[in-house]
Design a protein around this nucleic acid. Sequence first.
RNA 1: GCUCCGAUAGUGUAGUCCGGCCAAGCAUACCGGCCUUUCAAGCCGGCGACUCGGGUCCAAAUCCCGGUCGGAGCACCA
Length: 492
Amino acid sequence: MAVIQREISISFPELLKVEKKEQKHILPDLEDVKGKVVMRLAPSPSGPLHLGHTRMAILNDEYVKRYGGSLILRIEDTNPSNIDPEAYRMIPEDLEMLGVKVHNIVIQSSRLEIYYNEARKLISGSHMYVCRCDKEVEKKYKLEMKACPHRDQTAEENLDLFQKMINGELASGAASVMLKTSLNHPNPSLRDWIAFRIPPAEHPLVGRKYSLFPTMNFSVAVDDHLLGLTHVIRGMDQLNNTYRQKFIFDYNNWKTPFYFHYGMISYPGALLKTSLMKRGIKKGDFSGWDDVRLLTVRALLKRGYRNETFRKYWIDSGLRDVDATFSWEIFNSINKGFIDSGAKRIFFVKDPVKITIKDAPDIASSIPFHPSDPKMGSRNYLVKKGSDIYVTTEDWNSIPSGENVRLKDLCNVTKTGNSAKYSIDQEPMKRGKIIHWAPEDSSEFSVEKPDGTIDKGVIEPEGTKVAGEVQMERYGYVNSFPKKGMGYYTHR
RNA sequence: GCUCCGAUAGUGUAGUCCGGCCAAGCAUACCGGCCUUUCAAGCCGGCGACUCGGGUCCAAAUCCCGGUCGGAGCACCA
């Protein structure tokens, strides 16, 4: 059989081609699509977007692009204690850099009157009541499946108290608005949940004008309806919230959007808590939101990840309800696929050691910028007789004295003690070690790595003219900023 | 503890709804080879998986029950 195949491939190579079908991952169709879709991204403005957010952003964007319709960025800022005013600016920036097309931006703190009105309707319909119990007492009632004394207040009493809350006549914690569900619901977190409360902190956008804020479950339900959401895809962690929000849809006879909850992704060892990143920045552990040790979108892009990489990674991962682990291995490999063909090859000599090549003539060296793309040209050097070159300490120390080694695209040398001797034999070495080098007039260069360390060394002169994503040969891919004499390590 | 999800190779996934074409596809990693003056890319080949136990059925990764393991949530965060 093998013989026959070989014969076929010689005479009819195209016959064998058919067998291999490249399988590309495609997101499953959304259920219940009638015409265009309306979907949303709903981050809270506690900081810029990070790796964990990119999934929801890209998945929603993909579906809106597939079916047509609109993608709403809804900034969920109903908890004044957890807001970074800068986030209102950073989040749209991040989305744009990711290639996510947002059609409409909605800020919840500008819609408080809308929530109040919807609340009045539900209070009038006896679906909500103002509770003045202490937090702990209230909790106890629920665990015991009992009604608190305020649950039976009349709608008029509740409306009156609600207005007092709006007017700022009640202090934080003095009262809250509860949505009636079912006191004996088996899932305790679905029993009468909080719809409004008076937070202790002042809201950075609306300031003193408002002191009563809905909880996310209330504002999300109202907005999902009012904004005409057709499909909501979000993490499994939101499942209980979906059940909670369902009560509001039911009381109002609203049609619910189509929900899908995807499995949770775990990011082993990753710092993805915005609050912790923020604390680190404040303390000075990180230089800012784009510190390369952080996994924010801006830091990752600065390191040299392409926005296409995020997209392909999340599409490949699919939309499933299973939990999964984020794989840097795959993520980096995808990114390499995007950057390699355009990345010029550059010699970066880390921890350089200067050596003289004894007995060498003037040597002209021409090195292609890309081994498989001659159109990218080459860099040319003349290493004059008697001048020095740099190689990495690691390479140099790994070569035993007396050993021949190839300086890539320059010449063969023999290590003799602490110096190198121009080899008699300059034929291409098939088996030997090939190392990279940099000429004497190279510049200092350093590479910042995501683990916080910095590799210092020298970069070949032509390397100082190439900005952006390059491949430092035998080192790794680097997003280079030669004017600053440094770059950020992307990955191997 | 309670409520709710889930379980395919080292990793990420396809297939599971509507049982047979799945002695399980793809990617990545790894191993071997080709190419190559990079330990890159590319090409070829290889390794490697249906959580366990029972049931239904001519037939189960796919349906049912149970165990185990893992995950999410648990009430004024979103």
